[in-house]
Design a protein around this nucleic acid. Structure first.
Length: 225
DNA sequence: ACATTAAATTCGA
DNA sequence: TCGAATTTAATGT
């Protein structure tokens, strides 16, 4: 099946796509699949074999883990331009989390064999993946540090700032489309407490809250909380 | 936990 | 197809 025009453009203009040799790019374009998920649908499921590398074309997905008692917590989010799954693919493993669409989300899927082929043969692709892994490592180290902050406002502030990492979220929208309960999930605090923290951060001029969204005005201000 | 308000959906013209 | 009415979801306290 031939990829749609939009999908081709997305792949060709992606930071790694533009480094590829013509033959490799052709392989990517002819093997990539585009898929649309509705709100609440899972793009990947815990325990399933990972056989695709996933890029968000449009929309938003949150990566969640479920505890045995059925409680869930969100690890991180992926918005348009974000690629994920490389770690699991390189291990030939199973997904360790669910990636759930938070709104209608369009994704590009690169088959594992093609991912592997690029990893084996393309320097540019390797450089992209190395940087991505490094950015993610930094991201999770930051999350670990955030988890140890006792002040709830600071936790929420850092969580919001982490969603603004330019490498992990290339096309970060200025309005993060998260409800207050989503932010609670991501920051590991209750919805009520997230509400109070957001009000405080807004009063300090660091963010602007909307229904269903938060606009970040001062990332550095959030980080220095 | 409850009251309020905004958004989404249904229904009647 | 428009807008009022009703339901549902997010927010504020």
């Amino acid at each position: 099946m031939q990829a749609s025009r939009e999908l081709c453009t997305f792949l060709r203009d992606s930071p790694w796509g533009r480094t590829l040799a013509a033959a490799d790019l052709d392989l990517v374009l002819s093997s990539a699949v585009e898929r649309v998920y509705q709100t609440g649908q899972s793009i990947v499921r815990t325990g399933a074999e990972a056989d695709y590398w996933v890029g968000i074309m449009d929309g938003l997905a949150v990566q969640k883990v479920l505890s045995e008692s059925g409680e869930q917590t969100a690890l991180t989010a992926a918005s348009s331009g974000t690629w994920f799954g490389e770690g699991t693919l390189m291990k030939h493993g199973r997904w360790q989390y669910d990636a759930v669409a938070q709104k209608e989300t369009r994704v590009a899927l690169i088959p594992m064999q093609v991912f592997q082929w690029l990893l084996d043969g393309s320097l540019g692709f390797n450089q992209f993946v190395a940087r991505l892994l490094n950015a993610r490592l930094g991201h999770f180290m930051e999350l670990l540090a955030i988890g140890r902050l006792t002040r709830i406002d600071a936790r929420v502030a850092h969580t919001l700032a982490s969603l603004f990492d330019p490498y992990l979220y290339p096309d970060r929208p200025d309005l993060l489309p998260f409800s207050q309960s989503d932010i609670g999930l991501l920051a590991g605090v209750s919805r009520q407490r997230a509400n109070a923290a957001l009000k405080q951060l807004e009063a300090d001029g660091l963010i602007e809250t909307r229904r269903q969204g938060v606009r970040v005005l001062d990332v550095e201000g959030l980080r220095s909380r």
